[in-house]
Simulated assay, not measured.
Amino acid sequence: MTIIILIAVIGGMLSGYFIVPENIANNMEIVSTIALNLLILSVGIDVGSNKETIKDLKKAGPKILLIPFSIILGSFLGGAITSFLYDLPIKSGLSIASGFGWYSLSGVMLTNLDSAHIGTIAFLTNIFRELIAVMLIPIIAAKLNHYTAIAPAGATSMDTTLPLISEVTSPDITVISFLNGVVLSSLVPIFISFFYTF
């Protein structure tokens, strides 16, 4: 999956530079908006179709929310520090951090809300987050604890990194990982929009 993503990004950049006419490239926002809405719809369908999600959430209790809450705080702190270090507006830093690893949504949303520059930063930041998570999850699960292994994954803990988390932890942690991903994925569009309207 990661190789396909990198090929698509490089292919898109080369196409935009060498092949696609400027008048078409300037109207890509329409295609991005349609794709974004379809992506959000598909996530909603995916979450709604899993009938066991609510039951699993009740079983885990309210303490389950400590994991996504901690990930949110850590991400926002990192976004604020990064915006200061790189002289970005604080709303940009916090919005980029609000991607929680969901590169496709955050990249498109921030391109529409801000600019292609910020959208690209968000896209790459969240891709790197997922790549780093894939490398760190087995180490964290072995050296620290299984709950902590969910943190690097962020929103991807319900999909792309879930098989890895499942492999190196336990079935109970897998359920918590999925629920963490549901919570964070639901909050990504809310937080990104919030920081740009605040």
Rank of each mutant, 00 (worst) to 15 (best):
M1G: 15
T2K: 13
I5N: 15
M13D: 06
P21L: 08
S32K: 14
T33F: 14
I34W: 02
A35N: 11
A35D: 02
L36K: 02
N37L: 11
N50S: 10
K55M: 09
L57I: 04
K58L: 12
K59W: 14
K63E: 13
K63W: 14
L65W: 04
P68F: 10
S70V: 00
L73E: 03
L77C: 11
I81T: 08
S83G: 02
F84Y: 14
L85P: 12
Y86E: 04
Y86S: 11
Y86R: 06
I90D: 07
I90Y: 11
A97H: 08
F100I: 03
G101M: 10
W102F: 04
L105Q: 04
L110S: 12
S115K: 05
I118P: 08
F123P: 03
F123V: 08
I132S: 10
V134S: 14
L136T: 00
I137S: 06
P138W: 02
A141D: 01
K143L: 05
L144N: 06
N145R: 06
H146S: 07
T148V: 08
A149R: 02
A151N: 08
A151Y: 14
G154V: 15
D159E: 04
T160K: 15
T160R: 15
L162F: 08
P163H: 05
D172P: 01
I173N: 03
T174S: 04
S177K: 04
S177H: 07
N180I: 05
V182N: 09
S185G: 08
S185P: 01
I192S: 00
F195N: 03
Y196G: 09
F198G: 14
